[in-house]
């Protein structure tokens, strides 16, 4: 069973590489049980979206 520190790390790595089957299963199990890590995952996703739509960039949310 993963702890939160490992789960958060896997959430992050999953954004940068394809996780293995074992990793996905153990992360899925942890996330099902842990609200803090679910929040972490949503926050990390939001950071990616925010960077994509940073006002200094070329893309605005209303355009595609």
């Amino acid at each position: 069973m993963l702890n939160c520190k490992e789960a958060a790390r896997l959430v992050s790595e999953g954004m940068d590489r394809k996780l293995g089957l074992g990793e996905r299963l153990s992360l899925g199990l942890h996330l099902a049980l842990c609200r803090g890590c679910r929040h972490f995952r949503r926050q990390a996703d939001f950071l990616r979206t925010a960077c994509r739509y940073h006002p200094s960039g070329a893309t605005r949310p209303e355009e595609k």
């Binding site: 609200r35 929040h39 972490f40 926050q43 979206t49």
Partner: peptide
């Protein structure tokens, strides 16, 4: 941010940001 077993300390647990997409504006 974590206890000795690697779990979030209660006061450090990531919070619910609601619908953060509205902040982009």
């Amino acid at each position: 941010l974590f206890d000795r077993r690697g779990f979030w300390l209660p006061e450090e647990r990531p919070a619910d940001w609601g619908d953060p997409l509205q902040e982009l504006e």
